[in-house]
Design a protein around this nucleic acid. Structure first.
Length: 707
DNA sequence: GCGTTTTTCGT
DNA sequence: CGAAAAACG
């Protein structure tokens, strides 16, 4: 593979030189031009937030200096069209090969697919690799070759695959630089003047860059990991790994994390250290959730905008921007929620447990549309990650096949103890006032609340999580005047509970009506247009500050059935409306599909729908009649690859980078149908028990029909 | 100790 | 809600 021309190594969210298969392949092939392309407008509404861009800026600088010490440097390009920019880079450097690592978010799946097609058509050899996951999504499936729909089963399989995840690669010793001088870098601007001040503080707490990521990993493994199972629920303990932003940008490979952690586990197991072993399992589970988020995103490319189970689209969301604002500012009147929201705003960071608290409060108490919350997380979290956050919010909203349901209100009658969903806010037990509020579980001494809500700092612990119950004298002594320097609860919990039940019964009513309509064939019966997910509205319409409604505790407030509207919080840098994009893409995909190179032996069915390559493979695996097939294969392969390919089976390895995850935008109709199918379900769990396979079957059948 | 009841917890 | 763990007697 060496010889004429150099290789482009296209860096994206794999900003490291160690265990970077694309870089390693480039180095193996000869001279390398490393390039990073900044085209955030392509991410649609998910233009990275301020802190995320701050991280990226520093991570890129770090990568550049690492590459320089190895013999080349990082070319940076500003672009509004990544694929044509790639093409330019190829032309100007005379490259003949392109290497990059897989991403699994819907934007990347589509863009990478196009990149591969376009460059392959230009005679460029495109090779891609798994660098982000233990296993590529299409490697993990059940015995029938179908993707898992529950996390537990998925993760169990991951941990018992017939082959281990790849061992991490060492960094290259030296990189032969391609003709980088023929391809000048653009200066990338990641923060504007107004953001610099806020960003200045970040550097005190965080150090982006791949070798800092390694340091964080080592620190964690040698320190807090062993206590992980004990401490994981404390809101402010420094016992998490703090790896998530590093992992998001690929500064450290998850496979390296996995291997090192596993080694520790074996060690502790030998010593009979049960707690340590358990800690590792728990930590690995959180790694597994990250894997699962990619898995879900790959198999259900719309999971960042549509509930996976369809009933939620009938939930009457409270569309109240005043609530939304109060939540963002940490002025809901619930100390733990408010402390969390202020920490998020101030630092871009939240402990996982607090994320659950604030997002549950958002969905279940305020009943605001979940996507608003997800968008806010995206804009403010240092480790904002589309797939992980989508999974998290869907989990909270009760729309995952294995998640808990939205309406988990326990035994209201039996014991006059009720909870608004398990771990979240409230556990009432008349007997134990100290544990009346869930806050005490995560923050038993109120230290976390006091840190982030100085106005409550002088309140005794007894009342710190429910100041509205405190006697007036106590409040006075603490210098608190509720409704003045700290808000009264924005929503009474009982009122919220009643409203939630009301909303849920409304949801099921609508859902049943819709199902009935479907069965009668009168599909349009119940305001489908109203209930159908709508894409993002024009920014102005949702601009949060345009019209702030008076804070009303009025129970009859605006409710809407569109859970798809997301206020725009970033200054509008968006290029096009989403519909336009997908329309555009649909055409493009259809047009280009026929042009997929078919000069490769494995590409036996070039005309096959490329809708979801993972699925295609899995079907092949299941039937066992044909080996897995990749409908898109890159042009030039060497003989080894072809042989590996033709002898492949379900447990094949993809070390040598033939596969690019493919998603074509016609999936939009696919997901709609998925949701549509699920509308026929009364409760997801019972349905799944009765028809454990129906998810996949209906799903995949639909898929092949769309072809 | 061990059957029974209570509490916890869940991606 | 239902399984698993803890607490009870």
């Amino acid at each position: 593979m060496s010889g004429r021309g150099c290789s482009i190594v296209w860096f994206r969210r794999d900003l490291r030189v160690e265990d970077n298969p694309a870089l390693a392949a480039g180095v193996r092939a000869g001279a390398v031009v490393a390039v990073f392309i900044w085209a955030p407008e392509e991410e649609g509404h998910y233009y990275p937030g301020r802190v995320s861009r701050w991280w990226l800026k520093h991570s890129l600088a770090y990568l550049d200096s690492s590459l320089k010490s190895l013999g080349t440097s990082l070319i940076t390009k500003r672009s509004t069209d990544t694929v044509s920019t790639l093409l330019e880079v190829v032309k100007s450097t005379g490259a003949t090969r392109l290497f990059f690592n897989h991403l699994y978010d819907p934007f990347s799946l589509d863009r990478d697919h196009r990149a591969k097609e376009v460059l392959t058509a230009q005679g460029i050899a495109v090779r891609t690799y798994n660098a982000d996951l233990l296993y590529d999504p299409w490697e993990v499936h059940d015995d029938q070759g179908l993707p898992f729909t529950t996390f537990a089963a998925f993760w169990e399989r991951c941990l018992s695959m017939p082959y281990d995840p790849e061992a991490p690669l060492l960094p290259p010793k030296r990189i032969t630089s391609g003709d980088v001088f023929r391809c000048p870098s653009d200066t990338l601007v990641f923060e504007d003047e107004s953001e610099k001040g806020s960003n200045a503080l970040l550097a005190r707490a965080w150090s982006p860059g791949w070798s800092n990521a390694n340091k964080a990993l080592t620190t964690f493994i040698n320190g807090p990991l062993i206590e992980y199972s004990m401490n994981r629920r404390k809101a402010d303990s420094a016992t998490t790994s703090f790896l998530s932003p590093h992992l998001h940008f690929g500064e450290v490979s998850v496979r390296k994390v996995f291997h090192l952690v596993r080694i520790k586990q074996v060690l502790w197991a030998n010593e009979g250290n049960k707690a340590g072993e358990e800690s590792v399992n728990l930590f690995l589970k959180s790694i597994g959730l990250r894997e699962y988020s990619r898995y879900m995103s790959f198999n259900h490319p719309h999971s960042h905008e549509r509930p996976l189970l369809g009933h939620l689209k009938f939930f009457p969301w409270v569309v109240d921007e005043g609530y939304f604002k109060a939540w963002r500012q940490g002025r809901t009147g619930y100390p733990l929620v408010d402390a969390g929201m202020r920490e998020l705003w101030a630092t871009g960071w939240l402990h996982d447990r607090i994320r659950v608290v604030v997002s549950s409060f958002f969905v279940k108490v305020l009943q605001l549309p979940w996507r608003w919350g997800m968008k806010y997380f995206w804009d403010t979290l240092l480790d904002a990650d589309l797939e992980s956050d989508a999974l998290g919010w869907q989990y909270i909203s009760g729309t995952l096949p294995d998640g808990r349901e939205l309406d988990r209100i326990d035994n209201p009658q039996i014991k006059s103890v009720w909870r608004l969903c398990p771990t979240e806010l409230i556990v009432v037990g008349a007997v134990k006032p100290a544990y009346e509020f869930e806050g005490y579980k995560f923050d038993p001494n109120g230290e976390y609340v006091r840190r982030w809500l100085p106005e409550l700092a002088r309140l005794p612990t007894e009342w710190i999580h429910h100041p509205w119950n405190a006697p007036e004298s106590v409040l006075q002594a603490a210098g608190i005047e509720l409704g003045s320097n700290y808000p009264l609860p924005i929503v009474e919990i009982d009122a919220a509970k009643a409203r939630l039940q009301e909303a849920l019964s409304e949801m099921w009513q609508h859902e049943a009506a819709s199902r009935a309509a479907l069965e009668n064939g009168t599909e349009e019966g119940l305001g489908e247009s109203e209930a159908l997910p709508v894409a993002f509205p024009p920014d102005t319409q949702m601009d949060v500050d345009v019209h702030e409604p008076a804070r009303n505790n009025n129970p009859t407030m605006a409710r809407r059935y569109e859970d798809q509207m997301v206020p725009s919080m970033t200054s509008s840098l968006l290029r096009v409306e989403e519909e336009e994009v997908s329309l555009d893409l649909r055409n493009r995909a259809t047009d280009s599909r026929a042009e997929v190179p078919t000069n490769v032996n494995v590409n036996q069915e070039p005309r096959r729908e490329v809708l979801n390559q993972g699925v295609m493979q899995l079907q092949a695996v299941r039937s066992n009649a044909t080996p897995p097939q990749f409908n898109i294969r890159i042009g030039l392969q060497n003989a080894e690859d072809s042989m590996a390919e033709s002898s492949s089976n379900s447990s094949r390895r993809e070390r040598d980078g033939g596969v690019v995850p493919v998603w074509s935008p016609s999936t939009s109709s696919y997901s709609e149908q998925f949701v549509g199918e699920e509308n026929g379900i009364g409760t997801s769990s019972s349905f799944l028990q009765r028809h454990p396979q129906s998810h996949q079957l209906m799903n995949w059948r639909r898929l092949s029909q769309t072809g």
